[in-house]
Design a protein around this nucleic acid. Structure first.
Ligand SMILES: [Zn+2]
Ligand SMILES: [Zn+2]
Ligand SMILES: [Zn+2]
Ligand SMILES: [Zn+2]
Lengths: 173, 173
DNA sequence: GGCGTTATGTTATACTATAACAGTCTTGAG
DNA sequence: CTCAAGACTGTTATAGTATAACATAACGCC
């Protein structure tokens, strides 16, 4: 195994990527998925999903609310939280506990239990599903007789882009 | 491998254990540690630590506040949060992000990055430090060029005691 | 169109956490 | 011992996150 020079796996969307494609793909997948399941991706839910996908950094509920209002929609906290609740239930978004914020799911459609890499600098978040992590956790839990139902795995640190920048002389603060 | 009959590792304090010993041990360790580091485990901080250790279930800041007040101490939210901040900095407690609550550290004294098993039924929480999990996560992050600074790993599910109970006929909900 | 169900609007409130400043206690230098 | 600097705590106010409860509106089936 010679991983040294080979390009790393892609996990973080580059700073230059065409994000409109991300959003469009997420909305298309959500539309298809909800249709297949016979649940309603209403206009409000679609707009909230779109705002969650506004960036790859987790979005707070009140930031979403604020934007909805600026765009002319009547909205209060329950408006947003109910939409988020629906999107969570459908597996279209995830909640980042350590940030009290929400991020779009990159592989909706089937159950999956991955983990998140969250850049402390730019906020960019990558969703990773690594079987080694899952099995290590399952083994570890099984050894003490614990039955796992839900997992929250969030690693904070620095994404490739922000590590590079810190070399360029920007005082890390 | 025949794990069936062999007793599992101990991670969860049994429902019957003498919890006063847990508290006493935690306070003693904290006293010793703070003395060695030259930081002050004041009366308030000690009392807050004791209240965090009131149970193996994570304790909310406002529950601690409430108890402090009932016991006659003048206290407001900052009183508690400042003490919790100190205890976190000294590694005497951990914050459970998915519960916005705090739990005593079972192995204070040196840096460690383990994970938590949290019973959805009784709340009991076990702190586990499994090298396989750590290395799986580190490998996984390294492959995508992510530099990990902090990790939040919280597994929700059912502890051995509560799995047993659910078999005893108690309707699961 | 009537009607049950689902979704959204609206108001109020609970829960979690921190800012800002004042007063008190501890500690060590002189 | 005294006092000044720093650390700790008290106090008030407010920010940020989330939900309860009830009213109204939209949908979808008959
Ligand atoms: Zn993108
Ligand atoms: Zn970054
Ligand atoms: Zn105990
Ligand atoms: Zn339990």
């Amino acid at each position: 195994m010679i991983p040294s020079i080979s390009s790393p796996k892609i996990a973080f969307a580059g700073a230059d990527h065409d994000h409109r494609r991300c959003v469009a793909a997420a909305l298309a997948a959500a539309t298809e998925l909800c249709a297949r399941r016979g649940v309603r991706l209403t206009e409000l839910r679609r707009r909230v999903l779109e705002l969650v996908w506004r960036s790859h950094a987790p979005q707070g509920a009140y930031a979403i609310l604020e934007t909805l209002r600026r765009r002319g929609r009547r909205a209060a906290p329950p408006t947003v939280y109910r939409a988020l609740e629906f999107l969570l239930a459908q597996g279209l978004i995830h909640r980042i506990e350590s940030a009290s914020a929400f991020v779009g799911c990159t592989t909706p459609g089937r159950p999956h239990a991955g983990h998140f890499l969250i850049c402390s600098d730019c906020g960019a978040t990558a969703e990773v599903d690594d079987s080694r992590v899952g099995s290590a956790l399952r083994d570890s839990a099984a050894e003490v007789g614990f039955r796992v139902e839900r997992q929250t795995i969030e690693l904070s640190g620095y994404c490739p882009d922000c590590q590079d920048e810190s070399l360029d002389g920007e005082p890390s603060d």
